[in-house]
Amino acid sequence: MTKLHNDNHQNLVSFLRHHQPNPPHAQPDLEQRIMDSLEPRATTRGEKRYGKSTWTSSAMTLRTPAKLIATGFLFTSVSFGIRTPRIAVEPKDLENFLVNNWNDTLDNYHYAPLKEAEAYWLVPNVYEPQQALSVSTK
């Protein structure tokens, strides 16, 4: 029996590596055959499309915030612009306007006119001092 080495697996590994059988040479045309058999990359066009759409989407991404900001600004300014004239310059004018309109509405339908005290709740009590919720230490 041939005694090759004394060590355990390491000797086996080196024996295997040293004597591993070499594969036979490939046919000369194998490389070209493989290259010719490569499928056309369908994703190449797709990538281009994807690239375009990416560009478009990125452009959209860039444009969208600007659009949103512009829209928000427009909405705010318009809403403020519309609201500003509606604000009563004087609370008394608003009170009179509401009471008169209310009365007119009722008059049209021949209802009894409201008393000032009944219509008072419609008017915001702007001038009434708010009650303190916290207990003062004084």
């Binding site: 059988p21 594969p23 036979p24 490939a26 046919q27 194998l30 055959r33 493989i34 058999s37």
Partner: peptide, 21 residues
């Protein structure tokens, strides 16, 4: 080399081709 050790000589070129495809 790997395919040769695993599958042997027969159809080796075809197997190599299949791997790269």
């Amino acid at each position: 080399s790997t395919l040769y050790q695993l599958c042997g000589k027969s159809l080796l070129d075809d197997l190599v081709q299949e791997v790269f495809l």
